[in-house]
Simulated assay, not measured.
Amino acid sequence: EKPFINALKGKTHTNPPMWLMRQAGRYLEEYMAIRRSVSGFLELCYTPELAHEVTMQPIRRFGFDAAILFSDILVVPDALGQEVTFVQGEGPKLKPIRSAAELTNFNEAWLHQRLEPVYETIRRIRKDLDETYPDTALIGFAGAPWTVATYVVEGSSSKDFANTKSWAYQDPQGFQKLIDILTSSTTDYLLAQIENGVEAVQIFDSWSGVLAENEFRKFCLKPAKKITKAIKEKYPDIPVIGFPRGAGLMYPNYVEETGVDCVGLDTTVPTGWAKENLADKVCVQGNLDPQILLAGGEELDKAVKNILTDLSGQPFVFNLGHGIIKETPVSHVERLVDLVRGRV
């Protein structure tokens, strides 16, 4: 009866379970020590001993209710055969794919062989949690097809997603082939994560908010529905969390049509609105501004209490509205945990 899993399945807690997006990462000195020991970020993701260790670091420090697999959303295009690197200080760099003809470079047959180190990491984490933190759940994850597609096409992060949108608008059938490949691969990847020991999965659609309604339905909502349906058909008891960042007024549509068990709220979603429009339909997760956590002080205390006031009393998981910022002081995270736990 793990609190995090129970919340995803509809149970209400006096003090909600909590975890943080990017809870394992650069704000922790112990993470940086390991990061400096490897030549590149993907080496860390594909080294089970190290990925297991950094996954567990925030659990040991803060006692979160869930550990999330340490990996990256771009391991899927990497496993499909696209050239993926991470440049220090710049982020991910990929060899762009910008036409349907270039999709022949993808090979789904390589997927599980390339991702076996990730599955080994999951097995190690689950064993560790079962032995030392039996109330702590393990979350697996993947990037949503649209968000991963933006990196596949742009070759890096982007401000306007011009190349991706141009392909989607000018050759919708060809672009749909890319979305279909990523949907199929992501489904297989998440199912394999479940088979190896994760107890819930989150689908990160970090760039869903850049699309108009029609494209949101085609490229964000429909793939999430297909992935969730496939998971539920095989593993009906595994909760699915959707995080359609920036979905705005489309949040209710996303919840109603995808079938997710929980929806992650980005920072811009008013918690009062979420209580009125989402909380009676699904577990909600979120949505403290990472910048407030970085700032700390009275504003942090007030923001946390406001979220707890609005969203406690129904199935709820406390989290951030996006990933933790690398400069965040550890003392601020400790304060946050105390606030949510009701210790201050």
Rank of each mutant, 00 (worst) to 15 (best):
T55D: 02
S208K: 11
G297S: 08
I5A: 02
F161Q: 10
F175N: 06
V210R: 02
K159T: 13
V282N: 10
L221Y: 10
P244T: 10
L311M: 02
L293G: 06
V282Y: 08
G81M: 12
A144R: 03
P17C: 04
G40T: 10
V76Y: 13
E83H: 08
I203E: 10
D128H: 12
A66I: 02
L8E: 06
D135P: 00
D65C: 07
V152E: 13
G272N: 14
R124S: 09
S37Q: 14
S71Y: 13
S206E: 14
A274I: 05
Q193L: 07
W207H: 14
R22C: 08
H322E: 06
P329L: 12
A7Q: 03
T258I: 08
D72E: 01
R60D: 02
L50I: 12
T271D: 00
P270I: 05
E256P: 10
V201W: 04
G140V: 04
V330P: 02
T268G: 03
C220P: 05
V337T: 07
D310P: 02
T164P: 07
C262N: 04
R22Q: 05
R60K: 15
I181K: 13
E53Q: 15
D188F: 07
E199W: 11
K225C: 00
I227H: 12
R343F: 00
V76N: 15
I122T: 06
Y119Q: 06
A79E: 07
F106N: 13
V118R: 09
D237C: 13
V201K: 01
M32V: 09
T258Y: 09
K159G: 15
L311D: 01
A224F: 05
K222L: 12
T12C: 03
